[in-house]
Design a protein around this nucleic acid. Structure first.
Lengths: 124, 124
DNA sequence: CATATGAGTTAGCGGAGACTAACTGGCAAT
DNA sequence: ATTGCCAGTTAGTCTCCGCTAACTCATATG
């Protein structure tokens, strides 16, 4: 049911690296997230067992449909929260940083509420 | 520096029980938070070592100045976040629930930003 | 007086999720 | 062909923070 914050974070960062680099290895994830390669290795093992990702023959990481959906959802939450905080006067870097924690705490329903609010009260 | 979410949660709930009951024992905390008495016992031990709380002769829990300050700060964050979410359309109960996680993720500076925003854009 | 109850503690366990140390296997350069 | 590097994995450790089991102690109740 409840995915752990840690797994969600790995998925989000894999997505970001996919956008940035085109293809992603475990060591890229380790470098981006500031964790060791063994940590990534065991996290990837878990995500693979949960059918969120798979590795191709060359060792690059790809999303399954499920993994992609979850990664994109979290990334959307991250972006929305960052924009919201910035428009409330929080600095770009702090907003980005704190959104990383908040994003795991809000449900999809709450995301929709915030999104509607943002569109009608702020973006407008 | 970074207090754990768990400790912050204990402090917040002790504060709430103080307001509600006047005085607070470990078992009250256990019941309110849905954890076992041994869990509370070890959490209180930690908070006592950190000089956040102390016990009086009868076994009731009281805040030190430091503990009170931190508990009130977290409680303020909780209230503000709940009100913010509710005014964005999130239900009272979900807002309250999710605020419990978000409250540990926002800095004091971000709290001030949200507070200003709330006062000028929503409460007004 | 004997016993039951309730609060608190201690000891020990378990899962998450990080870490280090050390091994493997591929590939490049000398 | 040997050496060295880089990516990945495995094994084992640590910390945090829950849990259960079991003990202590005080109070209340038969």
């Amino acid at each position: 049911m409840k995915k752990s914050d840690s797994s969600e974070n790995y998925l989000k960062n894999i997505l970001i690296l996919h956008k940035r680099l085109g293809r992603v290895r475990s060591s890229d994830v380790a470098e981006k997230m500031g964790v060791t390669r063994p940590s990534v290795s065991s996290a990837m093992k878990k995500l693979r067992q949960e059918e969120m990702i798979y590795f191709n023959e060359e060792g690059y990481i790809f999303f399954t449909e499920l993994g992609k959906k979850i990664a994109e959802k979290i990334y959307s939450k991250h972006l929305l929260l960052t924009r919201l905080l910035v428009s409330m006067g929080v600095s770009e870097s702090v907003a980005d940083q704190e959104a990383c924690d908040i994003e795991h705490a809000i449900s999809d329903e709450t995301y929709e509420c915030i999104n509607r609010f943002y569109k009608t009260h702020i973006m407008a």
